[in-house]
Design a protein around this nucleic acid. Structure first.
Lengths: 177, 177
DNA sequence: ACCTGAACACCGTTCAAGT
DNA sequence: ACCTGAACACCGTTCAAGT
């Protein structure tokens, strides 16, 4: 069922209950026996996709590892533009796979000296909002809005670098914050 | 008419053509004599709101000025949560008032040493995406999602500071970039 | 120029009923 | 458990017609 949803999504069509049902050759309301509403379906699809992301090796250099995981997440959303707005509306994902990614980021942050949980929280939040916000903007009205996809990737990378430098520098100056 | 739309929006209701028409005591399709579709109406409302933002004094210290204008924009979107998702989908505003704000930001960036137009473009893009992305996430499903509005404001401010430091530092090291 | 009624092609969701 | 038909309460938009 999440497979059917992903298929609909990859067709470029908007993910509607009726479209998913149609692809399964089933009445629209039949879906409600398996998922609690559209919101739940989108959450399931989202976490399914997040499960395909490679977890960063905890032994890699922290900044490189964080850059890798955030870039991969951003790229995943760029590949599924129909999902980005929902990702934004839901304030990020909270499924088990999203949890795994968050934990991996915490490990990397801690290795970089960001040890306090509160500092990790804000760092993760800022990084995630940047990724999903940028992807949602990139999703835009058409396949390609006024921006080329490459300048988009480039500007995301720039913002990501600035944020990471800021996050890690903050804890050089106040170790143990 | 944009006034009616703003009224609907401030009621907390989603901005639908039919809601705006209802508030005006008019049939829904009557709106199409004044605006070209829902998209156009939202653009008009958005630019109307941006017109209420104070322009930063060009003589202020650049970083403070940029912080002020971005914080004000973010605050404006927080006050109109129904608008943020559309702002994201439209890849930012492009009306005359948005243009004015962009120009003001360019002046401040230039005063801070960011003189090349390309560098200004990416800086503005990164800052704007951060603001609207964060506001859209804050808009969330309910009035208050899992996040308190204050921690939201705080984490936005942190991200903003990191981005500004990054943007301005880039041009200390490579003046005239 | 501005509005109306009627209609089209969609939504998500619920409810009672079937197997 | 899983599906169906019918219905409800919505959408945005168009078209022909009225004033």
């Amino acid at each position: 069922m999440v497979a059917a949803a992903r298929a609909v999504l990859d067709d470029g069509s908007a993910l509607s209950m009726r479209a998913v049902a149609g692809r399964l050759g089933v009445a629209p309301n039949a879906l409600y026996s398996h998922v609690d509403g559209r919101e739940g379906l989108l959450d399931a699809v989202l976490d399914d996709l997040l499960g395909t992301l490679p977890l960063p090796d905890p032994s890699t250099e922290p900044e490189a590892g964080l850059t890798a995981v955030m870039t991969a997440s951003h790229e995943l959303l760029l590949a599924h533009p129909g999902l980005a707005p929902h990702f934004v509306a839901r304030q990020g994902a909270r499924g088990p796979n999203a949890q795994r990614l968050g934990d991996a980021m915490r490990v990397l942050l801690a290795a970089a000296g960001v040890t306090s949980e509160a500092a990790q929280d804000t760092a993760i939040r800022v990084l995630v909002v940047h990724a999903i916000g940028d992807a949602a903007v990139a999703a835009g009205p058409e396949g390609t809005g006024p921006f080329d996809l490459d300048v988009l990737r480039a500007s995301y990378a720039v913002g990501l670098r600035w944020l990471l430098e800021g996050a890690l520098r903050a804890c050089e100056h106040f170790p143990g914050l």
